[in-house]
Every structure is written in C-alpha cells, then in structure tokens.
Design a protein around this nucleic acid. Structure first.
Length: 180
DNA sequence: AGAGCGATTGCCT
DNA sequence: GGCAATCGCTCTG
C-alpha cells in the first residue's frame, strides 16, 4: 500500500467550501513484525489502537512533544499495519497552508511528516477519520493516478531498529520529498 | 512513581 | 552539522 499511495492526492475540505490538496510523494510502511512499529509484536496500547482498526482510517500520533504524524491504516481489521505519510506536493489551497506553516516557500509546506500535518491542520482530533470516503472532510481521492514516475525505496527515517527493511518509498527526483 | 526518549523541526554556528 | 523545544507513551523499579 505504501508505494501504491504515491501520486495519489490527499484532500481536506475546509469550512466555507475551499479545499487543501497535495500529491503524496513519500511514504513509509509499518507492521507488526517490525521493531520500528508502534504495533510491534501485535502489542495494542491506547495510543496505537487505531492501527489495528479498519483499513482506510486515519491514525494520527503526537511525537517529540510538538509534532503530529499522519498514517493510513493499511492492514486487515485486527492487523496492526499503517503507512506514514511523510511528504506531499501542494496542489491547491497553498495560501491557507502558508498561513498555518508560517512560510511561503512551497518546498517547506508539506515536505516532512510534521509539516504535512501542520499544513493540513491535522491533530489528535483527526484520529479515526475515514480517508477512503469522498464525503469525508479529509480523504484520499479515488481513481488511479498517472504512473509517469519511478519509485525509489530505502531505509526509513528517524528510527533506530528495523533499518534492514527498505520500506521508505519516494517518487524519484521529486523536489517535495522530505530530503533529496 | 519516575526516568528516558521519540516514525521531527527550525534555528544556530 | 549540532542542538533545543516539549510532552505523552513506555518501561523499569
């Protein structure tokens, strides 16, 4: 699911009818057999409960005392599996993102997991939202995107265990990834 | 009950 | 390249 999400568009409807939209350009996969995952060894806690929920839901967690990270629940119900959204290329609603992010550099709006949630206004209240219903206030647009890009994979970022897995996926050459 | 640290970011030199 | 910010989750005793 992690590479499949590349090129798809994350959309947020704002009160008033305007929208935020950005193309997903970088993702990471996490699952139960994975020592870097919140769901390692199938352990359920109050924080990670959503990872074991229905696929297509939004799992948001708080980290480093100040940042939120957004994930797409990706396993069957009961399986602790999710895809971290690490970076996206802004498409629509840039001025609203600029305001939330306090910068007008488009490269700094959604290029990083904490930046992306801040630009989209996602936080603990967004937990459990349905990302696969286009009626949602926050969702991933349906329909297969153009596959006119190559996918690069490598070790995930910011972890100390599980570095043997190449479960970070980026659109090759895209300038909006969290790092070159 | 308390310590340690994290799926990060931004500002400093 | 280095480090502070900042707080909730997890593990240890």
């Amino acid at each position: 699911v992690a590479p499949d999400l590349l090129g798809r568009v994350l959309v947020r409807r704002l009160p008033g009818g305007s929208r935020l939209a950005a193309k997903i350009v970088e993702t990471e996969a996490y699952e139960e057999g994975d020592p870097a995952s919140h769901s390692f060894r199938g352990r359920r806690t109050s924080r990670n409960a959503l990872m074991f929920g229905r696929p297509g839901l939004l799992y948001v967690y708080f980290t480093y005392g100040m940042h939120f990270c957004a994930n797409v629940v990706a396993g069957a119900t009961g399986e602790g599996c999710a895809v971290l959204l690490r970076a996206a290329q802004p498409i629509e609603g840039l001025s609203a993102m600029e305001k939330r992010r306090s910068t007008d550099n488009p490269r700094l709006l959604c290029s990083g997991p904490g930046r992306l949630t801040q630009a989209f206004g996602l936080d603990a209240r967004s937990n459990g939202r349905d990302l696969v219903s286009e009626g949602s206030a926050i969702f991933i647009a349906c329909g297969a995107p153009a596959r006119d890009f190559k996918i690069k994979s490598g070790p995930r970022i910011g972890i100390s265990d599980g570095l043997d897995r190449d479960w970070r996926f980026v659109i090759a050459g895209n300038a909006f990834a969290s790092r070159p």
